[in-house]
Simulated scan of single mutants.
Amino acid sequence: MIAHGTGKSEIELLINGQRRGVTIRSADTLLRVLREQLGLTGAKAGCENGDCGACTVIVGKLPIKSCMMLAIEAVGSSVTTVEGLQGAPIQQAFIDKFAFQCGFCTPGFIMLCHALTLNRPDADEEVIEEWLQSNICRCTSYQEIRAAVLSVLEGK
C-alpha cells in the first residue's frame, strides 16, 4: 500500500516469527529498517557494501547481507535476526569455543554459521571454509569460529 504524495509505502514483514508493519521508502535497505524502525540492532552496519557480513540475517533459510537487500524484497519471506535465534546451539558453541573478541562481527557470523548448520548439516572443513569467506573478522583468527561450527555439526 502506498501513501500517495509521500514516496513511502506501508509493508508487512515477517521478522523472527512476528508480522511487523513498517513504512519504507523504495530505497530503504533491510538493514536500516531492522535497526532504525524495528529496534533490532544485532545486525551491524559495517561496510554497508556487502563485503564484511556484519549485517547478515537469514531470509528463508539463506544467509543474506541485509545491507544489500531492499526491505521491499523481504515481503513474503521469513527473516530471522540474531535476536530471533532463541538459544540456537551455535550461540552456545561461540561461547564455548571463544569464537569472538570485540563482538562487532559476532552476530553476523552466528547467523552465517546457523544457516550453514541448517543448509549443510554434512559440511566438511572445505565447505565450512568456503562459507566463512563471506564474512570478515578483524580481531581473531577463524580457528575458533570453525571449531564452533564443527562442534554443532558434530553434536558436541
Rank of each mutant, 00 (worst) to 15 (best):
P89N: 14
Q133W: 04
D51T: 00
E126P: 09
L150P: 05
R138G: 02
F109K: 00
V59N: 04
G108K: 02
K65T: 11
L31R: 08
S66C: 02
V149M: 11
R120S: 15
C105S: 01
T117N: 09
K44S: 05
D51W: 00
A27W: 12
Q101G: 02
A3R: 14
V127N: 12
T81V: 01
K61L: 10
A45W: 02
T106L: 02
L38V: 05
R146N: 08
I110E: 05
I128S: 02
L70T: 03
M69W: 09
L62R: 15
G21T: 11
N49C: 10
E12M: 07
A147Y: 11
V59L: 09
R25L: 14
G7A: 12
E129G: 06
C52M: 01
K61W: 04
R19M: 14
H114S: 13
R19E: 15
G5K: 13
G50L: 10
W131P: 05
M68P: 04
T117Q: 08
A45K: 06
Q91E: 14
I128Q: 02
R120F: 15
A45G: 08
G155C: 10
F104E: 01
I136P: 03
I11C: 09
T41I: 10
F98K: 12
P63E: 03
G17R: 03
A115G: 06
A88I: 06
S26G: 13
I15Q: 04
K65E: 04
C113W: 04
E48D: 15
A74I: 07
W131Q: 10
P63R: 06
E73L: 11
Q133T: 11
E10V: 13
R19W: 09
E12P: 03
K61A: 12
N135W: 01
V79Q: 01
Q37A: 11
A123F: 09
